[in-house]
């Protein structure tokens, strides 16, 4: 999902600090932007960046598939609770009943807001791989510590990011093992059957990933991790003109979109 994906592209070659700053700016801006058109522009821009970075677009489709349940949940909750004037489905409990009156009412505004919140989540999820998949984890750690974060903390962050692909590997192995024993609930089962089967998938995945993480911790400890207050890096990173140009253009464009949202 966000495992480093090797390619020689502009985005891969950017200083990781530029990517982190732009990631932070876009993440903040999508919560400030209330105009769906502007949000749509950001999403289209992200798809273009994915293309520029040669990242497989099918990954984005996978995220969408995985998050579909969450999106449906968000849309239903917002449709029921957001309120609004355009009532699509009348409330189950009449409005005049005290305290619970109006429950079950679904509004168009609620559905649209649910879609909007889902779009924000999708943008966030599509944004992270643009940093994670284009930056080697050791450079990411170096960038974070160069931004003033203690190197131990920067490794905690990058190792946590690194754990996501580990979870994926574990998940795939467990699913294969289940399939080998003719367990086909996830392919052919009904929703309730799938819900019941999830613990058998998630529990070994978490235990396996924790075991691997613990071994990784032992390996890091054994190589003097945390021995000194400061550490050196065999390869350094340095901001070049290209990085400054992308940083300035990216920052202006993101802030500009927020400004347009409020003046438009």
């Amino acid at each position: 999902m966000i495992k480093y994906f090797y390619a020689d592209t502009l985005i891969h070659n950017l200083d990781p600090r530029v990517k982190i700053i732009i990631l932070a700016l876009i993440s903040i801006s999508i919560f400030l932007i209330t105009n769906p058109v502007i949000l749509g522009i950001i999403f289209v821009a992200l798809i273009i960046f994915w293309q520029v970075a040669h990242l497989p677009l099918k990954n984005m489709a996978t995220y969408f598939k995985f998050l579909m349940g969450l999106f449906i949940f968000l849309i239903i909750v917002q449709a029921l609770l957001y309120g609004g004037d355009t009532i699509l489905i009348a409330p189950v409990v009449p409005e005049f009943v005290p305290l619970i009156g109006g429950i079950g009412r679904i509004t168009l505004e609620g559905i649209l807001f649910g879609v909007f919140v889902s779009a924000r989540v999708l943008i966030l999820v599509s944004l992270l791989p643009l940093v994670g998949m284009t930056t080697p984890v050791d450079k990411l750690a170096l960038a974070i510590s160069k931004m003033g974060v203690n190197y131990r903390m920067s490794y905690v962050i990058t190792t946590a990011i690194n754990l996501i692909p580990l979870f994926q590997v574990e998940l795939a192995q467990i699913m294969d093992a289940q399939k080998l024993r003719a367990f086909q609930v996830f392919e052919e089962g009904r929703l309730m059957e799938k819900m019941k089967a999830y613990p058998a998938l998630v529990v070994p995945m978490v235990i396996g990933a924790m075991r691997r993480a613990q071994l990784m911790g032992v390996a890091m400890d054994s190589r003097a991790f945390g021995a000194q207050q400061y550490r050196t890096y065999i390869e350094d990173i340095e901001m070049v003109t290209r990085d400054w140009v992308v940083l300035i253009i990216g920052s202006i464009a993101t802030i500009g979109l927020v400004v347009v949202n409020y003046v438009w």
Partner: peptide, 17 residues
């Protein structure tokens, strides 16, 4: 746990500053 062989070997000495 790193992405390059060189970084893997350098990890210990780097930690020793």
């Amino acid at each position: 746990f790193t992405t390059k062989i060189m970084h893997e070997v350098a990890f210990g000495p780097e930690n020793l500053n």
